[in-house]
Design a protein around this nucleic acid. Structure first.
Lengths: 344, 344
DNA sequence: CTGAAAGCGCTTACAG
DNA sequence: CTGAAAGCGCTTACAG
C-alpha cells in the first residue's frame, strides 16, 4: 500500500531525486537518456506524484473549491459545468463540496476547503450571511454565485433577481391576475431580491393590498409545503410565483393533487428554467438564467485574482429572461382584473 | 494574503511550536494558561491549520473522494448524501468530482483524487472498464457504486440490475405486452446487466423474436434520441423499457410530442425512481434503488478497509423494487397478447 | 507538562 | 545538463 516516492524512482533510474523532479515538471529540459530512464522507472514503479507534498512547497494546490448549497438542485450542476470548463482551460481543477442547505454545514464545508488550501473558492446559492463569508476572503479569492452583494472584499456573479421577479409578476398582471401570491425562500441566496421584486411590482401595479407572502425554501418539498398553506389560507390566489423551479414543481404537485387546473384555476411561475421545466408535461413558465455562463464568469473572476493580480472587487450582474410556457394563463374570472381591491 | 503558521502563533503566545501543535491536536493535554494563550494567539492571527502540511506528515488526508459520472443525474446526489453522512460520522470528509460522462475525463478526475492523496475513493456510475480502475485500487481503498464486479482488488455495492430489469419486463408482459423494446446505455455502469435482464426475461416469456434493443445513454437527451429512432423504426413497440429515469423522461418527451398516449399507445418504464418520477404529471413506473443506503454502504466498505484493516474484497448487492405508477398499462390491442409471434 | 530534532515528499534556487 | 542543500508547515517520537 506504500506508494513509491521520487526517491524510489531516482534509485531505480540511477539518478538524483532532483533530476526526477525536473523530468516530472519539464521533461524537455532533461537529456534524452536520463529522461527515458526516469520515465521508465516511474512507470515500472507506478509512481504517482504526491500533490500534497508539491502543494506544500509551491504554496498552491491548483484546485478551485466549489461549495454549493444543494447537490440535488440541477441548477448548480450546470453552473459547475461552466466553472469546471473555464478552470480546466487555465490549468486548474475543480473540487466540489455540499453545504446541505444548512448554514452550519456550509460553513464547515468552507472551512475544510480553506484548510485544504484550495487556491480559490466559489460559493453557490449560499445560506450564510455575506459578512461571515467575507471573513475568509482575506485568505484567498472568493466568488459568490447567485447572491447580490457590494462587498469590497469578494466578487460576485448573479442575475438581476429583482428584475426577473418583476418580469414574472408583470407577466401575470398583464394576463389579468391581481391575486398573486409569492413563495419565498427566506434569506437563501437570491430569495430576498426576488421577494422584493415581487413586492415592488405588486405595488407599482396598485396591488399592494394583494401582496401575500408564504415561507418556503428552494426545494420541491419546501414549495409543496408552502402551497399547502396557500390552499388552506382561505384566500386563494389566482397565481403563484415560486422562488425557483424546484419549489414550483413541489407547488405544482400539490395543485395537481388538489384537483385544480394549471393554469385554468391557478397560474404558476418558477425561476431558473431547469431543463426539466421544459418537458411537455411540466412546461413551466419561469425566469431563465444563463447557468453555464454564470459558472464561467465565476471562474473567470477567481482566475483574475489568482493569475492577473486583480485586487478590487467586481460584481457581475447579468439579465434574466422570462420564459413563457403553459403554466400561466388568464385568471378564472375576469371581474377580478381591476387593481387595488379589498383582499376578500 | 500570506497565512499565519504555527510559528507565528507560537511567537505571539510565547511558546514553542510543538506546544501550539499539541493544543491544536489535543487541547486537554496542555496546561490551562498555555492553552489559553495559544488559543487566543491563534484567534487573533486568524490562524487556520494547513491541512496540506498535516496530511504530508500524517500520510493521510481524512478525505474520501467521490467521482461521479454525471453531476446532472439526481440519482448520484442521493447516493452522495449517504456517503457524506456515513463518512462524517467517522471523522472523514467527502469531496466530489465529476467525470462528465466521459471515460477520459473520469480517468483524469480519478488521477487528481489520487495525486491529492484522498484516503479512499468511491466511484459512482463509472464509464470506465473495471480493469482500468483496478489499477488504482492498489494505492487506496476503492468502492464502485452501481457497477457489478467480482474483482478481488476493490469493493462494490449495487442493486441487482438484472433482477430489476426482469421485474420490469415481467410487469409489462403480464399486462399483455409482447412488443417490448429496450433502450440501453452502452457499457455505462449498470446498463449491460439491465440489458441482459431484459433479454433473459423476453426469452423466458417466449418473446425472443420481439427483442429490440436501441442505443441510448443515461441522460434525458440520450433517451430522447433513442425514442426517436424507435418511432422511426417502422416497428412500433407497445412498451419501452428505458435504462434509467433520466432517459425515460427524454423518451416520454418524444412520445408526448408525437401525440401518442402513455400508456394508451405505449407503456414506459424507467429505472432509479427519482423523486421527480413520482410527480403526478410524470408518475413514471420504474425500478427503485435504495439510493442513500447504497451511499452509506459504499462509505462503510471504504471505512472498513481504512480503519478496520479489511483486505479481502466485498461485493454488496441489494434487491431493487418495482414501483408501479401510471406510465404502464395494457397494450392498445389484445390480440397481440399471445407470445412468440412474427415481429410484424 | 514542555521543548529540540527529525522528517513527510516534494520544489526551488544555487553551484558545478 | 546535473547534484547537494534548504525549506514548505506541520506531527511525531524522544528527552527533560
Amino acid at each position: 500500500m506504500k506508494q513509491p516516492t521520487i526517491l524510489d524512482v531516482a534509485a531505480r533510474a540511477g539518478v538524483s531525486k532532483s533530476l526526477v523532479s525536473l523530468v516530472m515538471t519539464d521533461p524537455s529540459r532533461v537529456g534524452e537518456a536520463n529522461r527515458k530512464a526516469v520515465l521508465e522507472a516511474a512507470k515500472d514503479l507506478g509512481y504517482r506524484p504526491n500533490a500534497v507534498a508539491r502543494s506544500l512547497v509551491q504554496r498552491r494546490t491548483g484546485v478551485i473549491g466549489i461549495v454549493l448549497s444543494d447537490l440535488h438542485n440541477p441548477f448548480f450542476a450546470d453552473v459547475a459545468d461552466g466553472i469546471e470548463a473555464a478552470a480546466s482551460e487555465r490549468g486548474y481543477r475543480a473540487m466540489l463540496s455540499s453545504g446541505f442547505l444548512d448554514p452550519k454545514r456550509e460553513r464547515s464545508a468552507i472551512t475544510t476547503m480553506l484548510e485544504l488550501r484550495v487556491d480559490g473558492l466559489i460559493i453557490m446559492g449560499s445560506m450564510m450571511k455575506v459578512g461571515r463569508i467575507e471573513g475568509v476572503a482575506t485568505a484567498l479569492p472568493v466568488t459568490l454565485v447567485g447572491r447580490h452583494t457590494r462587498s469590497k472584499r469578494l466578487d460576485s456573479v448573479c442575475t438581476d433577481d429583482a428584475a426577473g421577479a418583476r418580469e414574472a409578476v408583470a407577466h401575470l398582471a398583464e394576463l389579468g391576475h391581481t391575486r398573486i401570491a409569492h413563495i419565498h425562500a427566506g434569506s437563501a441566496a437570491g430569495s430576498p431580491r426576488r421577494r422584493r421584486g415581487y413586492e415592488k411590482e405588486m405595488i407599482k401595479r396598485g396591488l399592494v393590498d394583494r401582496i401575500r407572502v408564504f415561507r418556503g425554501d428552494f426545494t420541491e418539498s419546501g414549495g409543496a409545503k408552502a402551497m399547502i398553506e396557500i390552499l388552506n389560507s382561505g384566500d386563494m390566489p389566482t397565481a403563484v410565483f415560486a422562488p425557483n423551479d424546484a419549489a414550483a414543481l413541489g407547488a405544482m404537485e400539490v395543485i395537481d393533487d388538489a384537483g385544480l387546473d394549471i393554469p385554468g384555476d391557478i397560474s404558476l411561475i418558477g425561476y431558473d428554467d431547469l431543463t426539466l421545466s421544459g418537458l411537455p408535461r411540466i412546461s413551466l413558465t419561469t425566469v431563465g438564467q444563463p447557468r453555464t455562463d454564470l459558472g464561467r464568469e465565476a471562474a473567470q473572476l477567481v482566475l483574475e485574482r489568482l493569475d492577473e493580480g486583480r485586487e478590487d472587487a467586481r460584481h457581475v450582474v447579468v439579465p434574466p429572461s422570462l420564459v413563457i410556457r403553459s403554466t400561466t394563463g388568464p385568471p378564472p374570472g375576469d371581474a377580478d382584473a381591476q387593481p387595488s381591491e379589498d383582499p376578500q
